[in-house]
Write a protein that binds this DNA or RNA. Structure first.
Length: 574
RNA sequence: GCCCUCGUAGCUCAACCGGAUAGAGCGACGGACUUCUAAUCCGUAGGUUGGGGGUUCGAGUCCUCCCGGGGGCGCCA
C-alpha cells in the first residue's frame, strides 16, 4: 500500500464517521511544505454538503485522528485545510516498506486488461522526421507505463501502407522511370512530395493514382510487386530509426494486413444497413443528435472503388477485437486527426465492429513547431530527418564527454555507447517533459544541451548513486536499515520518493508521460541536494551511513523505473 | 462561416480534473570544487496567468463576451 492511500484511509474514515463521504478525506502532498508535509482539503467541500462552517468540520476530523501515533502534528489552517506532518519514525518505517516493494508502493492491476498501443505510424512514402518523434516516444512511454501497471500490452506501429498514397506512389514511379525493382527510400522521398502536390492540381493524374490504388488493393501482380519493393525499402529505414531510439514493437502490422477483413466487414455493414451509398461512395453516417456541428460521414469505399485509411482503421479494430481480445486501444496520433477518430470510433460502435465494452481512445498530441511557431522546417524548407537529429544529439554528447574529460579510461567504443545513451535521453526527455496535448517549439539547442532540466541531468543523478554504491561495496559497506532522517535534505528526499505510486497512477490515468518526466526531475534534484549536504562514504556513524546507502539505493531504484518509463537508459558512468 | 484548441516570468514550459503565497529550466547577477563525478549545488532578481464580466468560502483551472495564435471541416494520411 502507498503512504498516501494509508493516510487517505485514516482521514477518510474520520469523514465517514461524521457522516460525510469517505472521498473527502483524500490526502495529498502539502503545497506549503513549510506548514506541513501533507494536507486534506475535504472539510471545505464537506461544509457545502452540510451547511456547517468548514473549520468546525476540520476540527471534528482532527479530533478523531490527532492521537494517531504516526502523526507528529495535525492542525487546521486557513479556511479549513487539515495539515498533517508525520513523525520521523513513521517516515522511516514507510520508507523501509516502500523501498522493499518491487513496485515501490504502486498497486498493480488486480485484473489485467489487454491494451493495444498504436503508435509511431511510420509511412511507406516518407522517411521518419522530427514530427514522428512525438508519436513514437509518447506511445512507447505509455506502453511502458501500462506494462508496469500489470496490463497485457501489445505494441503495434500500424504501418501506413495501403491507402491512396500507395496508388499515388505507383503512378508517380511509373512516370519517373526509376527501376521499380531496385527502388530506395531516397527515391520515394524524392518522388512523393511533388506527386502529392501534382495530384491536387492535375485531375487526370489523381484519377490515375486512384485507379492504381484500386488495382493494388484488388491484387494486380505488377502493382503488388512494386508495392512490396517500396515497402521493404522503407521498412529498413524505419527499423533503423526505432533501433536507434530503443523502441520495440510486439507486432509489425500495417494497414495492408487487415485487407482480407475488409470485404466481409463491408458486406456485414451493408446487410445491417449501417453502410449506405452516397454520391457513388459507400459511407457510414456518424452524426449524432446532440452534435453542435456537422460531422461528415465516414467513407468506407470511394466512388472509384478504393479503400481509405478509415476503412483499414475499422478493419484493424475488428482484428484487435477478434484476434487480440483488446479491452483498450490507445491511438497515439497527431491531434489534428481528432475528427477522423471520432468518425472511426462512432462507426465501429454503430456497426458492432467494436463491442461496447471495448474502449477506443485517441491520444492526441500537439504539433512540433520551429522557432517561428510554425511547423518545423529546415532553412531550405525541408523536414528534418529523425536520423539526423539523433546524430546531432549523439555527437553533442560525445563532444561533452571529450571536453569534460569524462569516462576517459573507457574504450572508445564504450564512450560512443554512452554518448548515444545520453543523446537519446536528451532527445526523449526534451519531448516528453512537454504536456502531450500542447504544441511546442522544437529547440535543437535544448536537445543538445545537457544541463538543468534535461534527460542527462536525470542520468547523472542515477550514475552518481551507482558510483557511490560501487565504492561502498569495495569498502565493504552495505545498505542497512533505514532510520529516522538525519538531515532536512534527506527527509525531503524520502517524502518525494514516497509520492511515487500516485504519480505513476496519475500519469497512467491522464495518459501523460510529462508527469513522470517532471517527477523524475524532482527526485533527481532532491537526491542531488541530499548528495551535496550528506557525504555518505565519509559518514562516521555506521547506522546512519547504512541508512543513507539504503535510501540511495531506493532512490536509484525509483529513478531507474521512472527513466525506464520514459524509455531512457542509464549508463554506468558518464 | 461552423467547430476544436492554445494564450502563464525576457525565452522554453509546468501546475496532480476548483484549494493556501502560480512552480521549474534556460538566460541575467552573486556564491560553492585538497572530500562520494561541478553534466552538480546554494542564493538574488523576474508574474494583474491576453483583456472584461460572472459562478464559488476559494478560479491559471468552470461559464460568458472580446482580442490574438494554431488546427479541423466528404472520397489524402
Amino acid at each position: 500500500m502507498s503512504l498516501l492511500t494509508h493516510l487517505s484511509d485514516i482521514v477518510g474514515q474520520a469523514f465517514s464517521d461524521l457522516g460525510l463521504p469517505t472521498e473527502l478525506g483524500a490526502v495529498v502532498p502539502s503545497q506549503r511544505r513549510e506548514l506541513a508535509q501533507f494536507q486534506s482539503n475535504g472539510a471545505m467541500a464537506g461544509a457545502k454538503l452540510e451547511a456547517r462552517p468548514p473549520r468546525e468540520i476540520a476540527q471534528d476530523v482532527i479530533d478523531r485522528i490527532a492521537t494517531h501515533e504516526e502523526f507528529k502534528t495535525v492542525d487546521i489552517a486557513g479556511p479549513g485545510f487539515i495539515n498533517l506532518t508525520l513523525t520521523d519514525g513513521a517516515l522511516a518505517s514507510w520508507a523501509a516498506a516502500t523501498a522493499a516493494d518491487d513496485h515501490l508502493g504502486f498497486a498493480v492491476a488486480a485484473e489485467p486488461s489487454t491494451v493495444v498501443v498504436d503508435y509511431a505510424g511510420p509511412n511507406v512514402a516518407k522517411a521518419m522526421h522530427v514530427g514522428h518523434l512525438r508519436a513514437t516516444i509518447i506511445g512507447d512511454s505509455l506502453a511502458r507505463l501500462f506494462d508496469f501497471a500489470g496490463h497485457n500490452v501489445i505494441r503495434d506501429p500500424h504501418f501506413g501502407d495501403w491507402g491512396f498514397q500507395m496508388g499515388l506512389l505507383i503512378a508517380a514511379v511509373e512516370d519517373d522511370g526509376v527501376d521499380p525493382t531496385s527502388i530506395t527510400l531516397d527515391d520515394l522521398q524524392r518522388i512523393y512530395p511533388p506527386a502529392s502536390e501534382r495530384a491536387r492540381q492535375d485531375d487526370a493524374f489523381a484519377d490515375r493514382a486512384r485507379e492504381a490504388t484500386v488495382r493494388l488493393q484488388q491484387g494486380d501482380p505488377g502493382h503488388r510487386a512494386i508495392w512490396k519493393q517500396m515497402k521493404s525499402a522503407s521498412e529498413v529505414s524505419q527499423r533503423a530509426n526505432f533501433a536507434a531510439l530503443g523502441v520495440n514493437f510486439d507486432l509489425w502490422y500495417g494497414e495492408s494486413d487487415v485487407h482480407d477483413r475488409i470485404a466481409p466487414m463491408i458486406e456485414a455493414m451493408r446487410e445491417s444497413g449501417v453502410a449506405e451509398e452516397s454520391d457513388g461512395a459507400l459511407v457510414v453516417r456518424v452524426a449524432e443528435e446532440d452534435d453542435n456541428r456537422e460531422f461528415p460521414p465516414l467513407i468506407l469505399q470511394t466512388s472509384a472503388g478504393g479503400f481509405l485509411y478509415s476503412t483499414t482503421d475499422l478493419a484493424t479494430i475488428d482484428m484487435r477485437n477478434q484476434e487480440l481480445g483488446a479491452d483498450l486501444c490507445l491511438y497515439v496520433v497527431d491531434r489534428r486527426q481528432t475528427d477522423h477518430f471520432v468518425q472511426v470510433f462512432r462507426a465501429a460502435y454503430r456497426s458492432g465492429v467494436a463491442p461496447q465494452s471495448m474502449v477506443l481512445e485517441h491520444i492526441g498530441f500537439g504539433t512540433m513547431n520551429g522557432p517561428d511557431g510554425k511547423p518545423f522546417k529546415t532553412r531550405e524548407g525541408g523536414v528534418v530527418r529523425l536520423a539526423d537529429v539523433i546524430k546531432l544529439v549523439t555527437d553533442a554528447a560525445r563532444d561533452r564527454l571529450d571536453e569534460a574529460h569524462l569516462a576517459e579510461e573507457y574504450p572508445d567504443e564504450e564512450r560512443d555507447r554512452i554518448a548515444a545513451l545520453v543523446g537519446v535521453a536528451a532527445l526523449k526527455f526534451g519531448d516528453l517533459i512537454n504536456n502531450r496535448a500542447s504544441d511546442y517549439i522544437l529547440d535543437l539547442d535544448r536537445f543538445s544541451s545537457f544541463e538543468g532540466k534535461t534527460g542527462p541531468y536525470l542520468q547523472y543523478a542515477a550514475v552518481r548513486i551507482k558510483s557511490i554504491l560501487r565504492k561502498a561495496t569495495v569498502l565493504g559497506l552495505a545498505p542497512g536499515d533505514i532510520i529516522d532522517p538525519g538531515a532536512d535534505s534527506e527527509r525531503e528526499l524520502v517524502l518525494e520518493l514516497l509520492n511515487f505510486p500516485e504519480v505513476v497512477e496519475r500519469a497512467i490515468a491522464l495518459r501523460a508521460p510529462n508527469h513522470i518526466a517532471e517527477y523524475a526531475h524532482t527526485v533527481a534534484a532532491r537526491y542531488n541536494r541530499f548528495y551535496d549536504e550528506c557525504h555518505i562514504l565519509s559518514e562516521e556513524d555506521a547506522g546512519r551511513q547504512g541508512s543513507w546507502l539504503a535510501v540511495s539505493s531506493w532512490a536509484l531504484a525509483t529513478l531507474s523505473i521512472l527513466l525506464d518509463h520514459l524509455g531512457i537508459e542509464i549508463p554506468d558512468r558518464m
